[in-house]
């Protein structure tokens, strides 16, 4: 498992896509898209990323995942490459989805554990997983409880992924620092 973060427009997606090219043409490439196209700006963002990926000559299959992990990708093999983009959007989806549910904190914690277990399962199955996240924690704490909850959850989840991954990178304006 490889972890990649960076700021907005840091070049982290491009780096992630370059990184997976080393696996060669013969594997099955899955792109896990967590973004929901709710407006034209998001549509344009998604289209641009799709075009970037197509230009590499690899055959990507896009799989949408808003909250739950789709059954189709729960059991894979060492012939699969998963590019998960990104954990920040997925977590925001979870918060949004659970907003009106009872026992919300438990529900959120359950989703996070299921997600972590799936990452461990993919590791066991030999799947090459590349996870993209964002750097969003270098600012004053939020006055809004919901945002502060999100900050705490993403910080802890990023820490967990970094602890369990094989390598971890931070991208700043296309400059890459390997932390692990």
């Amino acid at each position: 498992m490889i972890f990649i973060t960076g700021g907005v427009r840091s070049g982290k997606s491009a780096f992630a896509e370059r990184l997976v090219q080393q696996y060669g043409q013969d594997l099955h490439y899955h792109y896990i898209a967590t973004g929901v196209a709710f407006d034209r700006e998001m549509e344009a963002r998604i289209t641009r990323h799709q075009l970037d990926r197509e230009q590499q000559g690899l055959h990507w299959k896009t799989i949408e995942m808003q909250v739950e992990i789709p059954d189709a990708i729960k059991r894979l093999s060492d012939q699969h490459v998963l590019l998960f983009e990104c954990v920040t959007t997925w977590l925001a989806n979870v918060l949004y989805y659970t907003e009106t549910l009872e026992n919300r904190e438990h529900r959120i914690a359950d989703y996070v554990v299921v997600f972590q277990n799936q990452l461990l399962a993919w590791q066991q199955q030999g799947v090459r997983v590349v996870i993209v996240s964002n750097e969003i924690l270098d600012e004053p704490s939020a006055s809004n409880d919901e945002v502060e909850l999100y900050r705490a959850l993403i910080g802890k989840l990023n820490q967990w992924i970094v602890a369990h991954c094989k390598s971890a990178y931070e991208v700043q304006y296309q400059l890459v620092q390997q932390w692990k």
Binding site: E135, L137, D138, G155, K156, Q159
Partner: peptide, 12 residues
């Protein structure tokens, strides 16, 4: 003196 620097919730 030691300074431990990092964003919030980063495990400092």
């Amino acid at each position: 003196m030691y300074v431990i620097l990092g964003g919030a919730y980063n495990g400092k």
